[in-house]
Design a protein around this nucleic acid. Structure first.
Lengths: 347, 347
DNA sequence: TAATATTTGTCCACTTGAGGACAAATTCGC
DNA sequence: GCGAATTTGTCCTCAAGTGGACAAATATTA
């Protein structure tokens, strides 16, 4: 009952090993009748090709590696306001891997480690995956990118705005910021603050660009003092919100760089007895659970993270099935504006 | 620069392939001096043994598979009140795998699928992992357990109270429930309600037992009408809380089966204008982010999920290094009571 | 110094499938 | 029914290690 190999299947179906291999690998030159007979044998024996042998034989490994940031992953579950970006990525990728008969391996890397290049290379050469998915902030790290290029393994960078090697799958952060800003402006806000994101993430820059573009488009001046640097953390948000909200001519609306920042803004506003959305409208990015549960629930942009991951898997699988080459295409997936109770016309 | 194999290392270190193999596998019969020389060659070449070849030739695959529940995983990130149990498991397991040079593969399974047995078997025979980690509710599913037993792959069941095959790593739910209940009783509560958990999870039964044991220990009678069935969901919690809180002699404290249930109790209490903790004390299990962020933050029990996962990995790796056999031991890890503002003496 | 113990090397089999070359068998078209 | 096209089989190599048997080299001990 153990270790069913291709030989057993061949015997059971009374065909050659080669034919079974042809069926398993979907080669076109097999008669439907025979294919069916072989498939029946496979099903009856519960045969599944041994991935190790397939990989050794030289072609594909049916493995995809996702490199996640160690620190971010830790925060993800340790922090009260954790982002669930990585979870959603994984879920989307796993489901898609399943469809293709692939398997997803998640590996943590630490961008600050001196062993980074070695670590990446080690994982790649011991697993020899067919493809790699990089999530922020890994997808912009030169050491990681260099290691991947040298290993000649196709990879997809998720959520990154930066041009560079590998394919990209992301949403249009700039357009999202622009739409959010225009939404606020459309409600009559004329002083719209912006707490920028971390410089580590290029998405943050794109959001700022979108913010500026929107103001420009609706004919509002860009007041540089309304742009306050945040760093995507709660603490950074507190400081930035303090700056913005304690000035006499404080903005009537704030766009936060991400949800964590937004929660911080909310915190400060509550302390200063500034009502949301009465005295202050607040909009943000990411749509993590905490901003849906907050009072009031926040207007945000929902990133299609799972869909992005699914597409990343599709791209990698297609490349592996073909020639192992992946184009440098930049795939933009549609985002979704979630207009909630935190934004309203100024009174 | 590509495909560094054991042969290259052997040449560089001027030793036989066999010796390199001995170094890589930490066999004791190698002189320190020689070991060092080989290690230097390995480091210089950036060699990492190909996992596929290792699996094929040898006895170990250096892979560990974690089977997570598909539905639960989806809820995990889709729901606003998602539990982060799976994330924490993964994080703990990944870090530990890293230490042992192992890799973690996460696979989703759907307990309601008719293909369940086939799916599990398929994953196992194509990957041939050295061990498997099962998370609730998979760790109690007879089909899954049977498939694992047939595949003769050692596995660890995490968080399961049920006796059965495989090793177990968990916290003592009964003791936790008991301590929480005694905490409430110690504050002077005499009518303590309990919203039970889902029958799918045996932990829920254990918690109930602990609740009963605590009442018994402090000399309080068990009023069966104060035990209301929940199902670990928010909706189920709403119904149960309604039952408990709308009766004239309503309890002064409620123990919720899990955090989601607790949030539901809180929701109902707010609607009925029952103050927490003034009119009602509330305690719960799991310590997910949402109950730390809630107002007031809830008294809960923190499960050492990451530690449990780490221990699971340790057990599996040790078994693989030995003879591939895993004892049926039941490992209990200490939990932590987080006493917060939701529990206070009744007024 | 010889006998013994330990370390290192040699050699071969084995794992499971892919893939290529080519022959044999079958089907198809006319 | 014959030649051509397609399907299936045979046979062999290759991937990158492990593991075992055993020989050779070196170190230790009496």
């Amino acid at each position: 009952m153990r270790n069913v190999t291709i030989v057993h299947v061949a015997e059971k179906a009374r065909v050659s090993v080669k034919t079974v291999s042809r069926v398993v690998n979907n080669e076109p030159t097999v008669t439907p009748a025979l294919r069916e007979r072989v498939q029946a044998a496979i099903d009856q024996l519960g045969y599944a090709p041994n991935i190790a042998a397939r990989r050794l034989g030289g072609s594909r490994s049916f493995l995809i590696v996702a490199f996640n940031d160690r620190k971010l992953t830790l925060e993800n579950w340790a922090s009260d306001r954790g982002n669930n970006w990585i979870d959603r990525m994984q879920y989307g990728a796993m489901l898609r891997c399943d469809v293709h008969g692939y398997h997803l391996l998640c590996e943590l890397i630490d961008l600050e480690s001196e062993q980074l290049a070695r670590r990446v290379q080690h994982v790649l050469s011991s697993l020899r995956p067919d493809g790699v998915i990089l999530t922020p902030p890994n997808c912009e790290d030169p050491t990681v990118l260099e290691a991947l290029k040298r290993a000649q393994i196709p990879f997809v960078r998720m959520g990154s705005a930066a041009a560079g090697p590998g394919a990209r799958v992301r949403m249009d952060d700039q357009a999202a910021a622009r739409q959010l800003t225009e939404h606020l402006a459309g409600q009559g806000h004329r002083r719209i603050g912006f707490v920028t994101g971390s410089a580590r993430f290029l998405a943050s820059r794109a959001r700022e660009d979108g913010y500026r573009a929107a103001l420009c488009a609706v004919g509002l001046p860009v007041d540089e003092t309304l742009l306050v640097p945040g760093d995507f953390t709660f603490e950074g948000g507190i400081a930035a919100a303090g700056t913005l909200l304690s000035r006499p001519d404080r903005p009537t609306a704030i766009l936060a760089g991400n949800d964590e920042t937004a929660l911080a803004v909310m915190h400060v506003a509550r302390r200063l007895e500034i009502a949301i959305p009465g005295d202050l409208s607040l909009a943000t990015f990411d749509d993590t659970p905490s901003v849906r549960l907050s009072l009031p629930p926040l207007t945000t942009v929902r990133q299609p993270v799972a869909e992005m991951a699914a597409q990343a898997v599709d791209l990698l699988v297609a490349a592996a099935a073909k020639d192992g080459k992946l184009s440098r295409a930049d795939h933009l997936l549609p985002f979704e504006l979630a207009l909630r109770d935190s934004t309203a016309p100024p009174r």
